[in-house]
């Protein structure tokens, strides 16, 4: 039933067109809270991807068995199960990441995005499209988390760290061993999170509005051209008729 191109669109729609953070503006709590460092953002992205993927698969498998009156509680229990699995795995194998993400790992349960995908997509589609949908959404989500976290980490301390190794140190580029005064811990504080996210949303909305305006202008232009063409054709016809009458 599902061919290759439709599977591909299920994946790519999560990246920009239906990006869970930028477009639906859901699940903002972890987006604001854990984006203090790129490492946290990637860790959260992996945990989120696992939960979304597994819950989408299971929900899609049982979609014909579950009575629709109790589907939401069933989905929540499924999601909570996978969240508990992630929580335990992380505490066992990545204890430092688990500490810094803290309560936001169990809070994936009430993340509107996961429940939203289960309800809006996996409960109506087959397993394969649901997998692609989950992967696309997870990549889109992680991308935006990583973007916000990178901005906050760089502006906050001038450095960027992944898995314990320094990737980028702007302070060193300027020959200084200490954090330069232009970088302020404001961006790592809660207030900085709201500011960065607000500006990102504002820029995205501005781009969208200007694009829509351009689209409308183009449409208007095309319509005018069409009208002009029609008018010309009519005139030509008239001319031909007149000519015919004259002869």
């Amino acid at each position: 039933m599902a061919n290759k191109t439709s599977l591909k669109t299920e994946f790519t729609k999560g990246l920009f067109k239906e990006n869970p953070i930028l477009v639906t503006m859901l699940g903002l709590c972890p987006t604001l809270a854990i984006t203090v460092s790129l490492e946290n953002a990637l860790g959260m992205g992996i945990a989120f991807a696992f939960v979304l993927l597994m819950s989408n698969i299971v929900v899609s498998l049982i979609r014909k068995i579950v009575p629709s009156e109790i589907r939401i509680p069933v989905y929540i229990v499924i999601i909570a199960t996978f969240v508990s699995i992630v929580e335990m795995l992380m505490a066992a194998y990545l204890p430092s990441l688990s500490d810094s993400l803290g309560v936001f790992i169990p809070l994936i349960v009430v993340n509107c995005i996961v429940l939203g995908r289960a309800e809006a997509f996996a409960s109506k589609n087959g397993v394969l499209p649901s997998i692609m949908d989950a992967l696309g959404m997870a990549v889109g989500y992680t991308m935006i988390l990583a973007l916000i976290a990178s901005i906050r980490e760089i502006l906050g301390s001038g450095t960027l760290t992944i898995w314990g190794s320094l990737v980028l140190d702007i302070n060193k580029l300027f020959g200084s061993n200490e954090t330069l005064p232009i970088f302020s811990s404001f961006f790592i504080s809660p207030a900085g999170a709201y500011l960065v996210l607000g500006i990102i949303f504002g820029v995205v909305a501005t781009i969208r509005i200007s694009k829509e305006r351009k689209q409308k202008m183009l449409e208007k232009k095309a319509e005018e051209e069409k009208k002009a063409k029609l008018l010309q054709e009519k005139n030509n016809q008239q001319l031909n008729l007149n000519k015919g009458a004259g002869e």
Binding site: L195, G198, F201, G202
Partner: peptide
């Protein structure tokens, strides 16, 4: 216009 609604609320 782009900042109306959620963006300005976040700021």
């Amino acid at each position: 216009e782009g900042f109306k609604g959620i963006p300005i609320a976040l700021i």
